[in-house]
Design a protein around this nucleic acid. Structure first.
Length: 104
DNA sequence: CGGCTGACCCCAA
DNA sequence: TTTGGGGCCAGCC
């Protein structure tokens, strides 16, 4: 699998996340692992940082529901606009947690 | 080709 | 609760 296809797979999955729902980097990596065979939370974060400018990256948060450091203001504003269950620090993954299985 | 970095995650103290 | 360590892998120098 070429890097471009890998990035494409990540972006494709992120774009499938419905409004008001979120996925953790680990969840994205895990879902991608089935498709590409190799994935890690760090990879997803890295890819988002470099190529995520074209996708709703704000729907991807840390496993703790925290928003990406340095981008909290951006993500929080967008999530709030989408009606996501914002928690004190980030988003309530227990309520907004999304899985590819739900949207297919 | 080698080394460092990073929008992460998990476990232990 | 915060810190520190290890693992992970593509991208950039």
């Amino acid at each position: 699998m070429t890097p471009d296809e890998y990035v494409e797979a990540v972006l494709d999955l992120v774009e499938r996340i419905p409004e008001g729902r979120v996925m953790s980097y680990g969840a994205v990596a895990d879902a991608l692992a089935e498709r590409s065979g190799r994935a890690s939370a760090r990879l997803v974060g890295n890819i988002m940082a470099r190529h995520g400018g074209s996708v709703p990256w704000h729907r991807v948060v840390t496993s703790a529901g925290r928003l990406p450091p340095g981008h909290e203001r951006e993500a929080r504003a967008r999530l709030r606009a989408e009606g996501a269950p914002l928690r004190g620090e980030g988003v309530d993954i227990g309520a907004a947690g999304w899985s590819p299985d739900e949207g297919m």
